[in-house]
C-alpha cells in the first residue's frame, strides 16, 4: 500500500498530490491519503468518481484528546482515505 501524507496541506493540494502519485502507479494499487484539510474528505471521493477510482474507506478526524500520541501533528486531528486505483 502506498501512503500519501497530505497533512497540513490546504485544498486542492491533497488531491493534486494524490493524482500525481496515481499517474505513476498501477491499476489495482491501493493508496492511503492522510489529510487534515476538511475539504479532502469530500474531494478525494469526488476526484475518484471523476477519474474512475474507488474509495474503499474514509476515516474521519477524531477530536483531539488530552494526550496526543507521538504521531500527532501539531494539534490538528487528521483523517485518512483509502483509494483503490482503477484503470487510469
Amino acid at each position: 500500500m502506498i501512503v500519501v501524507d497530505a497533512r497540513g496541506l490546504r485544498c486542492p493540494l491533497p488531491v493534486i498530490r494524490l493524482a500525481s502519485l496515481a499517474r505513476d502507479a498501477n491499476p489495482g494499487d491501493e493508496v492511503l491519503v492522510r489529510w487534515t484539510d476538511p475539504a479532502a474528505e469530500h474531494d478525494i471521493p469526488a476526484w475518484a468518481r471523476m477519474r474512475g477510482h474507488t474509495v474503499l474507506e474514509t476515516r474521519l478526524p477524531q477530536p483531539a484528546s488530552g494526550e496526543a500520541g507521538p504521531d500527532a501533528l501539531a494539534d490538528e486531528p487528521s483523517g485518512a482515505t483509502l483509494v483503490r486505483l482503477g484503470p487510469g
Binding site: C11, P12, V15, A39, E41, H42, D43, A46
Partner: peptide, 17 residues
C-alpha cells in the same frame, strides 16, 4: 471558516475550484 460548502459536500460534488 476554511470549511468547504456543506451543500457541495452533501451532494458528493467536488468542493475545491
Amino acid at each position: 471558516s476554511l470549511e468547504p460548502s456543506h451543500v457541495l459536500a452533501a451532494m458528493g460534488a467536488l468542493t475545491h475550484g
